[in-house]
Design a binder for these strands. Structure first.
Length: 303
DNA sequence: CTCCAGGGATGAT
DNA sequence: ATCATCCATGGA
């Protein structure tokens, strides 16, 4: 099946650090969208997809393109969004580099759980945790003859033990994930109903969950609730912001950074953030690392 | 405000 | 083969 997808780069979108379970396969990727299993491949201004799953998708084949288009946010006016970014050298480089990158709409629980696991972890490690959770607790599906796993529902994770979760390399995050799963499974935390909340209220609700602070809450708002104004500040973004917009200013508090980003990057700040993030990470080896020790710096070859 | 647990991958030596 | 570095939350 072919789905029209102008201004879309599948590889960029899946590898920019917003989602962690897609696996390279042949000329495309295999993964899940909720309870759908699929293969997706970049085409000319289009997405070529193949659906799998056991049993066959229950809903009509007619509904499937819409589900894929919604997941990849093909409805976002990407040209307008990019045009709204501030015009400065750093932002312009990131915008050119990340052409076709879209902020996707992930299932809320899956996104929340994954980002609770992401704390103090690097992207490569988050991938492993996400896949281990799926393999141990999630349901199986087949696509293109290979086995993949769905993300386990909150009810399933809630019945796990902390030790079982620790076997998925969660470390101290196991306790937080378990506690949050119980709140979501019991209905005490109603992730779907929270869609109706304002940004500030939604962030406050999310931050009440164990293992969720401002950064994780903003990631969930951006990647699952479609709040494209949300601006998660991790170490990468903080580095970019400080170097680019606060050069040789001391004492820039997190509060100050948050106020600046909301004002400077505007209503599509989340997009700007992801572009800056992905560009900084992708070019890390061609830049001098600012926090390398003096000893390392002296010995390393000039480049 | 500061300090620090936590743990596995990743990269340098 | 060792050693340093990366990372967010939450509690002291």
């Amino acid at each position: 099946m072919t789905i029209p997808a102008p201004d879309f780069d599948l590889e960029m979108t899946l590898n920019c650090g917003q989602v962690f379970h897609w696996r390279k396969y042949r000329d495309g990727f295999v993964g899940t969208i909720g309870d759908l299993a699929l293969y997706a491949e970049q085409g000319e201004r289009a997405l070529k997809v193949r659906f799998g799953g056991t049993p066959k998708p229950a809903r009509g084949t007619r509904a499937l393109p819409g589900i894929v288009a919604r997941y990849f946010s093909l409805d976002h006016p990407l040209k307008e969004i990019c045009a709204s970014f501030p015009d400065d050298p750093t932002m312009n480089k990131a915008r050119d580099f990340c052409r076709g990158l879209r902020i996707i709409r992930q299932p809320k629980w899956e996104c929340l759980a994954t980002f609770i696991c992401s704390s103090m972890k690097q992207v490569a490690h988050i991938r492993q945790i996400s896949c281990a959770l799926r393999k141990r607790y999630g349901g199986k599906a087949m696509i293109c003859g290979i086995t993949i796993y769905h993300f386990p529902a909150p009810e399933l994770v809630a019945t796990a033990t902390e030790n079982g979760l620790r076997k998925c390399a969660l470390g101290y995050r196991a306790k937080n994930l378990l506690a949050t799963a119980k709140r979501v499974a019991s209905g005490e935390a109603d992730l779907e109903a929270w869609s109706a909340l304002s940004g500030d209220e939604l962030r406050a609700r999310l931050c009440e969950l164990p293992g969720v602070g401002t950064k994780v809450a903003n990631c969930v708002m951006l990647f699952a609730y479609g709040r494209i104004t949300a601006f998660p500040i991790d170490v990468w973004i903080e580095r970019v912001l400080r170097q680019t917009y606060f050069a040789r200013k001391r004492k820039v508090t997190p509060r100050r950074l948050a106020e600046f980003t909301a004002e400077y990057f505007g209503p599509h700040g989340g997009y700007a953030q992801q572009y800056l993030f992905h560009h900084a990470r992708s070019t890390k080896n061609s830049q001098r690392h600012p926090q390398r020790s003096r000893r390392t710096l002296k010995k390393s070859p000039e480049r």
